[in-house]
């Protein structure tokens, strides 16, 4: 039997993986810096919680609903703002995050400043990780598809992408919708795990926390994002040993990483890369290229080779 405390940390880790993967799609893969991811998380969380609490909806339906509502707002935000780029987009998403928080603070159905309490405790380790694995698989599939390549092309060079026939506005909105969907899904799981929601929990710092996971892991890398979410969920708990210096170490770790590994722990590393390493280690030869099964198992190795495949 695994200790309930570890199980809980791992469960929260799973929720963070889902949300970070959503942001990775927007920021890491499509290259659109979003500083408002917590807003989509809060939309999903509130929507799902209101559905289970006020309408007695089944948990799974509420999760799906929350994620879809978040995706809808992703599209809504996308239309006016995605013509902006770079810093301007970042500021717009930041503004959206604040607006969402203030609206929740004044919305009767969201319990205003008191928030929503007594949400059924329906999320657990297995529901979270089943959905996390599904999210990872979705991300890998998307990454290796025409859709994913269009996202990457926009990140690499928007003008060239348009010249290759990629309608960048259309795809950026899709990226925002999909990324927000996963933020909302994570939010719904969070709501039904923590059982209490308050607008103050979804401020700018929460957005930055999720962004840190993506950046630490390696922007655009799925294994990196998973590792980043894992590390940044576990580190504050592990560091409890150093007591009041905990947050100092935490901050120090981030600074250290950004100086010595600016591309993140697994920047440019993909599941196919990891698989190739494993093949090389076990068979002493390089792996075959594209197609076939993707997604190896393994972690912690350093990214020296930068073979990239989707």
């Amino acid at each position: 039997m695994i200790n309930a405390y570890y199980l809980q940390v791992l469960t929260i880790m799973g929720i963070n993986v889902i949300m970070a993967l959503g942001l990775n799609l927007i920021t890491g893969v499509t290259g659109q810096l979003s500083l408002g991811h917590a807003a989509f998380m809060s939309i999903g969380a509130y929507a799902a919680a209101i559905l289970t609490l006020n309408y007695g909806a089944p948990f799974w339906l509420a999760l799906l609903f929350g994620a879809l509502v978040a995706a809808f707002f992703g599209v809504l935000l996308g239309f006016p703002t995605l013509r902006l780029s770079g810093d301007y987009l970042a500021i717009a998403t930041m503004g959206f995050g604040e607006i969402t928080r203030v609206i929740l603070l004044n919305l009767d159905i969201a319990g205003r400043a008191l928030g929503i309490s007594g949400i059924p405790h329906s999320s657990n380790f297995s529901t979270v990780w089943i959905l996390a694995v599904l999210s990872i698989v979705t991300m890998v599939f998307v990454g290796n598809s025409r859709l994913g390549r269009a996202f990457l092309a926009i990140r690499e060079d928007e003008i060239a992408a348009e010249a290759m026939g990629v309608n960048s506005t259309y795809y950026k909105i899709q990226a925002f919708a999909l990324g927000s969907f996963f933020a909302g899904l994570g939010g719904g799981l969070y709501a039904h795990y923590i059982t209490y929601l308050n607008p103050s929990d979804f401020g700018f710092m929460k957005s930055i926390e999720i962004l840190n996971m993506v950046v630490l892991g390696g922007m655009g890398s799925i294994p990196g994002t998973i590792l980043g979410a894992g590390v940044l969920t576990a580190v504050p708990e592990v560091l409890r040993a150093v007591r009041e210096y905990r947050m100092l170490f935490y901050g120090g770790l981030l600074v250290f990483m950004m100086i010595f590994k600016p591309n993140g722990l697994l920047g440019g590393v993909h599941f196919s890369t990891i698989r190739n390493w494993l093949i090389r280690i076990f068979k002493g030869s390089a792996g075959s290229p594209a197609g076939g099964s993707r997604g190896g198992t393994g972690a912690g190795e350093d990214a020296k080779t930068r073979v990239q495949e989707g």
Partner: peptide, 29 residues
């Protein structure tokens, strides 16, 4: 030159075929 620098040579050309291929989110999933 405006290539997709961080992508592989193959992926660059695959993106070139964007308009002559099909595939959306549903297809990807």
């Amino acid at each position: 030159i405006r290539l997709f620098g961080e992508l592989t040579v193959l992926d660059n050309v695959k993106i070139g075929g964007h308009v002559r291929s099909k595939g959306n989110l549903f297809g990807a999933l």
